[in-house]
């Protein structure tokens, strides 16, 4: 399965708000740990190493500070 880069969320603003809400009140370590658990859960849901490798490549390509 190739990586979906086009919009695919049924409620993008709602999902984004849920993400922020999940992190509300967490310190940096707790926040990073939550993200790690979330990545593992979503990786399992995707289930295909090839897809996750493509997602990893896109994430690594993207530099927030560039």
């Amino acid at each position: 399965m190739s990586l979906i880069r086009d919009p695919n969320m049924d409620d993008p603003d709602g999902i984004y708000a849920d993400l922020l809400a999940a992190h509300a009140g967490l310190d940096a370590d707790a926040s990073a740990a939550l993200n790690a658990r979330l990545v593992l859960i979503l990786a399992n849901h995707l289930g295909r190493r090839e897809t996750i490798a493509a997602a990893l490549a896109l994430a690594r390509d993207t530099d927030c500070h560039g």
Binding site: I4, R5, D6, P7, N8, M9, P12, Y16, L19, L20, H23, L26, D27, A28, S31, N35, L58, A59, D61, T62, D63, C64, G66
Partner: peptide, 19 residues
């Protein structure tokens, strides 16, 4: 913190990822 990280990550991804 996380809000800032998610915001900046969305902007950074936008050029390459239409979603």
């Amino acid at each position: 913190g996380a809000e800032r990280l998610f915001r900046d990550s969305v902007l950074a991804l936008a050029e390459q990822a239409p979603f």
